[in-house]
């Protein structure tokens, strides 16, 4: 049952990530093309609930999706036991969520 749930989580998080990644890439192109400075970018993001929600969702979806993919790769390509792999993936996921949310707070708070 757990494998089934993890599979579903990985697929659903991918579905969430797909449009977010496209917007994120578009945003990078936009910011670079217009030559926005860091101060100008922060001026637009700080206090913005929209960007907080957008990147908050991005970080959470990535923190779910990436460790599951990593888990599959470790399972397939290393001889490491499943328990250790689960633990490593969990730690990786928490790390991604922690660092990502910290970054979101830094640009919107």
């Amino acid at each position: 049952m757990m494998e089934r749930r993890l599979f579903i989580l990985q697929r659903l998080s991918a579905m969430v990530l797909a449009p977010l990644v496209l917007v994120h890439l578009g945003l990078i192109l936009y910011a670079v093309r217009d030559g926005l400075t860091a101060a100008e970018i922060l001026g637009r993001t700080q206090g913005s609930l929209g960007w907080a929600l957008f990147y908050g969702a991005f970080v959470l979806a990535a923190a779910v999706h990436a460790p599951l993919g990593l888990r599959n790769i470790l399972r397939e390509w290393t001889g490491v036991g499943l328990r250790l792999i689960n633990l490593l993936s969990l730690v990786f996921g928490l790390l991604l969520a922690g660092l990502g949310l910290r970054a979101v707070v830094a640009v919107v708070a």
Binding site: M1, E3, R4, F7, N72, R75
Partner: peptide, 13 residues
């Protein structure tokens, strides 16, 4: 059957 086909080493591999 669906659960078993989805256990570790199942169709997700």
């Amino acid at each position: 059957t669906l659960d078993r086909a989805f256990a570790a080493g199942g169709c997700a591999s």
